[in-house]
Nucleic acid binder design. Structure first.
Length: 387
DNA sequence: GGGTATGATTACGG
DNA sequence: CCGTAATCATACCC
């Protein structure tokens, strides 16, 4: 049961609501019970009367009031009566418009009673103390790590965060990282970007919708509570808390949106950027650079991290692609040296020529170094470039 | 369409 | 974590 209602239930002498779960140790409640036990007509009758009237009015919903005044009309309850955000709102917001005269009269009389302000503030105080002692401790919850993860991912994928420019740049970066050379797959690439933009658009429009709904609902509830706070002890803190509850609810809805957006992006990624499914051969220039390095370091074809980075940069591929390439190359070369002889000779000649050119340009100081001296068998070639 | 080339992935060992 | 070997899945070429 909502603790606000519990308080009211504890206070109301009418016992309109079940009180089974109210702790007997509650000093406030004990005090109220003692008050209830006072026989009517005694000095306390004045306050008791007011209490009864306040509770009778504020605790029953408008429907009930109407039902009491117009018993012919069967009221239809569509929300829990103890939910102040919904049940109380069934009529609170429009109170005063079509209320029965008797009801309005009683309400007015109550509001004008000389004891009302004092009683009201006492009730507020009691409620505040109780509510804060019950709930105050667990008020501030830390930011949800799950939602932070989703936020980060959406930001990284360019779905949330800066619009268009930054977003597609991030997408392009992601595509380049997962794809191959920069000048291939432009069709898939633009297709991917279009789909990502679509997801982004849906995400933002949904998010906006949620935020709008949230603020509308918050305003609605706040208005209702403010309206009710004239006859019911509702402190600003409680309104604040209710707003926080609403925001939590809406943020959990937002999380679902974020989650499904992330899923959509992941599916899109795997569809478009799974390099294994959409394998592209490296372009000619890249293969040439790699082969040149491989055959000129045939004795030890294991590029260092720096060398890999350099090659990756030169070829427009990632370092891990360079590693893959060298891994494949080594094993395939070793497995069938014969098949690679021609290629080996080609690149041997090539590098020799290049080296010669370089050394010639460098004042012909020292002869080109021949790095082949171990590890993998060197290609044997005749002076005319053939086996 | 089938064979081959090739980039990526996986299992495993050191 | 890196390299090897086997394998997968696609690209490419005839």
């Amino acid at each position: 049961m909502d603790e606000q209602t519990r308080m009211l239930a504890g206070l109301t002498p009418l016992g309109a609501l079940p009180q089974a779960d109210v702790g007997e140790s509650d000093p406030v409640r004990k005090q109220q019970q003692q008050q209830q036990q006072q026989p009517l007509g005694q000095p306390q009758q004045d306050i008791g009367d007011i209490l009864q009237q306040i509770m009778a009015i504020t605790d029953e919903s408008l429907d009930e009031a109407q039902a009491r005044c117009w018993p012919a009309e069967a009221p239809m309850r569509w929300a829990a009566p103890d939910d102040p955000a919904l049940g109380g709102g069934a009529g609170g917001g429009t109170a005063g418009a079509a209320l029965p005269l008797d009801f309005q009269h009683r309400k007015h009389a109550l509001n004008c009673h000389r004891m009302k302000p004092a009683l009201f503030s006492v009730l507020c105080e009691i409620k505040e103390k109780t509510v804060l002692s019950i709930r105050g401790v667990q008020e501030e919850d830390p930011p949800d790590p799950q939602i932070m993860r989703l936020d980060n991912m959406l930001l990284a994928e360019g779905v949330s965060g800066p619009e268009k420019g930054g977003g597609s740049a991030a997408a392009a970066a992601a595509a380049a990282a997962a794809g191959g050379s920069p000048n291939d797959g432009s069709i898939e690439h633009s297709d991917y970007r279009a789909k990502l933009a679509q997801i982004r658009q849906i995400y933002h429009s949904e998010l906006e919708k949620y935020e709008q709904a949230c603020s509308e609902f918050t305003n609605h509830v706040m208005n209702l509570l403010r309206e009710q706070s004239r006859t019911r002890p509702i402190s600003p803190k409680e309104i604040e808390r209710m707003v926080a509850i609403i925001h939590r609810k809406f943020s959990s809805i937002q999380m679902q949106l974020k989650q499904s957006t992330c899923e959509a992006v992941m599916i899109l990624r795997s569809r478009f950027l799974d390099a294994r499914r959409k394998r592209r051969n490296f372009n000619k220039q890249a293969t040439e650079v790699l082969n040149e390095y491989f055959y000129s370091h045939l004795s030890n074809p294991y590029p260092s991290e720096e060398a890999k980075e350099e090659l990756a940069k030169k070829c427009g591929i990632t370092v891990s692609q360079v590693s893959n390439w060298f891994g494949n190359k080594r094993i395939r070369y070793k497995k069938n040296i014969g098949k690679f002889q021609e290629e080996a000779n080609l690149y041997a000649v090539k590098t020799a020529v290049d080296a010669a050119n370089v050394s010639a340009q460098a004042s012909q100081a020292n002869s080109p170094a021949t790095p082949n001296s171990g590890g993998y068998p060197a290609p044997c070639y005749t002076p005319d470039g053939r086996l």
